[in-house]
Design a protein around this nucleic acid. Structure first.
Ligand SMILES: [Mn+2]
Ligand SMILES: [Mn+2]
Ligand SMILES: [Mn+2]
Ligand SMILES: [Mn+2]
Lengths: 222, 222
DNA sequence: CAAATTTGTTAGAATACTCTAACTTTGTAA
DNA sequence: TTACAAAGTTAGAGTATTCTAACAAATTTG
């Protein structure tokens, strides 16, 4: 059985594989905020348990069972975040830290009940997909708001970054998942965008913000 | 900050103090299923952090801050058990293992929300009192059913033992907390008791069972 | 009360996870 | 294509938690 530490390594490997395609030891060490030798020795132990493939000086890769284990932990993390928001009145900016702990709880029934009480959600409060019981992950193809052009109407579906600072900013601007945003204009100089959405007829979003807002290109028309 | 291991030691010390009055190292080691030297060295480290008093070859005692910490963990454990039963449809025989893990989660808000959603419960699903936010523990004075005499009507308020085997037995006999039990007779030979309670006009309880059922001597009269 | 038993302590070692320092391999770029 | 930089590895060590073996103190008991 994987220790809490090993579970965190597997989760990091899973996320790096999705974000960057191939996994380097440096990225892993950086992600987990440990030294290179620490990551190196832990990877050796993950290899011994057949959760990662590793050859000297080569990039890393999760094995099938490693990926399954990682997906199950990420499933628990995201179900927990959703449960905290929907059932326990947490804000979406408050849930990550708690989920980081609860994801390590061993109790299939506990997470099954969360899943049932939530009606089998497919995304977490930040729009990230929840792996299903078999470890399958629906990778929705959203694009950053920066790639839209004036006149377009799009639906806010996800976030490229879920830091609590960014989430607090979105709260203050009443920018929530699911809302429809219309692009009014784009500033050539700094790529900032003027948009409108419910209760906000004219709001300026910096490039920094816009590139972190993931939208659905073709929103259903009213 | 206390590690998960230290938290479990503090909890054990707290419970031993209540159950036995004074705390011996042997009891502690036995409770936690570790060797005597292991308990000894951990107690030294708890002493260094000023959570226990310890003198060579003398019984142990929690310090004020140690007791507070222990009470807060037991509060989290029992709130969690109540939450699992009332909000997540767990049986009372299934919650202890999960609570054993969740009690170590660091998030005041998480347990505050449990408390609120449950309406500030004062006991856990097995009748054990939940310490309040200040670490105060209401020690209700219940007595075992063995100490009642035929003709008496009492209310089942707690359990002297909450092993899942015992709880499963109680489930099968529909013996739940809060029901009123009338003692019909007591067998002199083996101390077994014949009782009656809702849906069970005549049920025999062994001494083993009866001594684990904690009842309120003076039930409110109808 | 002296022997036997129980309880507590010390010493020494193992495993898990982490670090820094030193070294090697790989990839880049002049 | 050699030199420099980046990435990866090895060696050696520290903390936390646990163990067994050996020993010492305290308690119980005949
Ligand atoms: Mn998260
Ligand atoms: Mn985690
Ligand atoms: Mn319990
Ligand atoms: Mn515990």
């Amino acid at each position: 059985m994987a220790s809490l530490t090993e579970e965190n390594y597997l989760k990091a490997l899973f996320n790096l594989e999705i974000e960057k395609g191939k996994i380097t030891l440096s990225d892993l060490a950086n992600q987990l905020q440990v030294s290179l030798p620490t990551a190196n020795s832990m990877v050796k132990s993950l290899k011994k348990q057949d959760w990662v493939h590793q050859e000297k000086y080569k990039p890393l890769a999760l094995t099938l069972s490693g990926r399954d284990l990682a997906a199950s932990i990420i499933r628990k993390h995201r179900l927990t975040e959703m449960f905290l928001v929907k059932m326990m009145n947490f804000g979406w900016e408050e849930v990550h830290e708690v989920a980081e702990q609860i994801e390590h709880v061993h109790s299939p029934k506990f997470f099954q009940r969360m899943d049932e009480l939530l009606g089998h959600p497919t995304v977490d409060p930040h729009g990230s997909p929840i792996p299903d019981q078999n470890g399958k992950l629906e990778v929705a193809q959203y694009s950053p708001l920066t790639q839209t052009t004036p006149g377009q109407r799009v639906k806010l579906q996800g976030l490229a970054n879920s830091s609590s600072e960014f989430l607090a900013y979105l709260n203050s601007k009443e920018l929530f998942l699911g809302i429809t945003v219309e692009v009014l204009s784009k500033e050539l100089f700094d790529q900032s965008m003027v948009v409108c959405y419910p209760n906000h007829p004219k709001e300026v979003l910096s490039e920094k913000v816009a590139e972190r807002l993931l939208v659905q290109s073709a929103p259903e028309v009213s």
